[in-house]
Design a protein around this nucleic acid. Sequence first.
DNA 1: CTTGATCCTCTAGTGACTAGAGATCGTAAC
DNA 2: GTTACGATCTCTAGTCACTAGAGGATCAAG
Lengths: 139, 139
Amino acid sequence: MNLSIGALSRETGVKVPTIRYYEDVGLLPEADRTVSNRRTYGPGDVSRLRFIRHARDLGFEVDAIRQLLQMSDHPSKPCQEVDSIARRHLANIDSKIDRLTALRTEIRRMLDSDAHGTISECRVLDVLAEHGKCLHEHH
Amino acid sequence: MNLSIGALSRETGVKVPTIRYYEDVGLLPEADRTVSNRRTYGPGDVSRLRFIRHARDLGFEVDAIRQLLQMSDHPSKPCQEVDSIARRHLANIDSKIDRLTALRTEIRRMLDSDAHGTISECRVLDVLAEHGKCLHEHH
DNA sequence: CTTGATCCTCTAGTGACTAGAGATCGTAAC
DNA sequence: GTTACGATCTCTAGTCACTAGAGGATCAAG
């Protein structure tokens, strides 16, 4: 049931040094050690690490992930602070979804018009750039 | 019509040194200079830079952005290479949207059940972690 | 013509990894 | 048992994408 760091790495697709790094910066708790000082992990660590990997890939920074994990670690205390954090992230996520959807639509349109032989002018750039009107809201 | 680097920065929300950095790494073309060696920019640069900013925020790395910009720079040549790049990005974008949507749903559920006084167990972690089943497909 | 903001280049620091050196540990094969 | 070798350990240094700062030049307002 317990995994070595290498097994955890294979299980999650996160590289071994990166796992150690996440422990260093407090995204993962300090791992239990065997008598010979090797880290051991359980199933909970697998989920947590997969979450971290996806969140990073989605452009959340470590600090944001720390907050999301905190929500998960203390679910029964949705105090005002956690609540406002959640709301802020929700707004950020909505914005990301909107922009990705716009980008997707445009790339699809390009591929599509290409298939039909029409010379397509590419507007991928503009479709995201126009979102620039919502200036400076996310820092 | 022409902007200084500071004006471009205010226009796009991208910091001045970052703009220079993007020029260094080739995301922005080498800027025209005034007689006194200052960079000047036009409206095209505003769009391009906004696009870069959003793309970065959405978790695309500089190299991916370079590819997307190339699509935009040569729209009339949807050769097979560009086409496959677009398709790969499309798949990646779809996946990002899926995961963000799942995360959004779960955060909403938390906020919602909190509002109704129920003690909500937080599953934000699991909802993304389960996507870990689609292992190693992106890079 | 001075003063302050903005620009220039260049070097160095940060965040989030990633790679490598050198040492130790665990197991399987002799 | 002991040798072989792969996985792990710690620690330092390198990469990518910025970000901040020093030191100097330039522009625009007063």
